[in-house]
Amino acid sequence: MNFLVASIESLGAKVTGWFTVGYDIFAFLFRSLLLSLDRATWNRATYDVVIKQVYFTAVQILPVFLGYALVISWLIITIILTTARDFGLTAFASEMTIRVLVLELLPFLTALFIALRSGSAINTEVALMKVNNELDALAHCKVPPMQFEFLPRLIGGVISVITLAGLAGLLALLLSYLSIYGLSMAGFDAFTQILAKVFNFKILFGLITKCALFGLAVTLIPITAGLETPKKLFMVPVSVLRGMMRVFFAIVAIEVVSLALKYI
């Protein structure tokens, strides 16, 4: 009987924990949104930090990222085309390539890429700042961390995921055109027709929203995870671990919801 009570208790604690985490995340998001709407936030210093964040999250990794997107896209396009030819379904190959790569896989991979590279770094940095009382020190020096540390990271994350996923998507479109029709304008009309069929404005809007949510997830969740670190140095790795797990679940959840909205 005690065992049952204990397990129910632990389950209740876990659920409460999830709710607390969820509440913290959304409360933080709400506060940052409010702050971003405040005119006083947008001074020269904030812009500078935002630009720096965009530089570190997107521009610095651009060559590596585009190379990686190129290889993945080329592989998947080749696989889809070969399979489609084997089954005599070439007519559907280009649409399939666009739907799989541009709408789903590339944004997802971009989010993972940024989560692994920048998300984990942000999580560690915020956790260390918290443990070392740097955040309190900053607040004391009239440098509110929300304005100069967190909000720029959120904005940088959103911009980075949208731009990187967009560039990778355009690259994949170009690559799929070249793979299907080669270096000629012969298939331009047919390809245009397929693009028009796939990209209506709902889809385009949904894609941008999805990328924005990915960008938020890969920065917001690590920041809140870092902020809730107890002030003990050995808790920093645990904080990063938890934060990255949450990021992963959030990315998958966003992808699943977007797929469900699109196809169900």
């Binding site: 731009t163 967009g166 560039l167 355009l170 245009t192 693009l195 028009a196 990209f199 209506n200």
Partner: peptide, 17 residues
């Protein structure tokens, strides 16, 4: 990126008539 995005949106507008 903005340039590419704008070109793409214009192209989609053209494609959709």
């Amino acid at each position: 990126t903005l340039l590419f995005g704008a070109i793409f949106v214009l192209y989609i507008l053209y494609a959709r008539g």
